[in-house]
């Protein structure tokens, strides 16, 4: 992990991903080459089935390319063993899911602690970090609520706290606002924006949500597994 100096969070070179089902091969990504710089709010945008999730999964090191070269935070992920990749994710990557994906049997605080379990913190460190992060996302008085006692927006806040509590290099979010109404979505986007600036984390989204797209620093348009366009918002001084 290098310091916050500009650099690339993700580098893809001629990356392809094929799914073989029976005799049929589906090409989800075709020869994708791209670099996503560090510390930005980056969007993968495209119609349904274009390969956004596939691309995010590869960046998030939970899936691997069929061919090509992938570097995440300077690491060649394909060279690592399954356990090493898991450790890499635990340290460097935070996930925010469309469906929130909180553990139903754990409270908000425990869900955040759960992600810290693998990082060698003491129990009290985990607790204080989780509490601080939940207060930061506005859930300071919902620490002991279970997911089924929280609204969608609150659940996504817990998920954001969980993703950021370990201070990762990259936070990946696959359509994080798709299950929320537009007002709540707006609040979640604002929250993520604030957190991204505060933590200098690289956020990478896939989304259809125009509200979210309008916040993008970088936008990558994808169609049929190909990155067709990259647009960069001018950095305001």
């Amino acid at each position: 992990m290098t310091d916050g100096a500009p650099g690339n969070a993700v580098v893809l070179q001629s990356v392809s991903r094929e799914y073989v089902e029976g005799d049929v091969a589906v090409v989800a990504l075709k020869d994708v080459s791209m670099t996503i710089p560090r510390g930005r709010f980056s969007m993968l945008v495209g119609p349904s089935g274009s390969g956004k999730t596939t691309l995010l999964n590869i960046i998030g090191c939970i899936d691997q390319q069929t061919s090509g070269h992938v570097e995440v935070c300077g690491h060649d992920i394909k060279a690592l063993s399954d356990n090493r990749v898991a450790d890499f994710r635990a340290e460097n990557i935070g996930f925010i899911f469309q469906g929130f994906n909180l553990l139903p049997v754990l409270t908000a605080q425990e869900n955040v602690e759960y992600a810290l379990l693998l990082l060698g913190f003491s129990a009290s460190e985990r607790q204080s970090r989780a509490r601080a992060m939940l207060s930061r996302v506005g859930l300071g008085d919902h620490l002991h609520h279970r997911p089924n006692q929280l609204s969608g927006g609150q659940k996504q806040r817990v998920a954001i706290a969980r993703a950021l509590a370990k201070d990762p290099e990259i936070v990946l979010a696959d359509e994080p606002t798709a299950n929320l109404d537009s007002e709540t979505g707006r609040q979640i986007i604002d929250l993520m924006r604030t957190m991204q600036r505060e933590f200098h984390t690289s956020f990478i989204f896939s989304t259809h949500d125009p509200q979210l797209i309008s916040e993008a620093d970088e936008t990558y348009r994808i169609r049929d597994g190909i990155v067709v366009e990259r647009s960069v918002k001018e950095l305001v001084a």
Partner: peptide, 14 residues
């Protein structure tokens, strides 16, 4: 299954 996928993504080993 979803909980398993989530835990794996969070970095828990098999």
């Amino acid at each position: 299954i979803n909980e398993i996928g989530t835990s794996r993504a969070l970095g828990f080993r098999r």
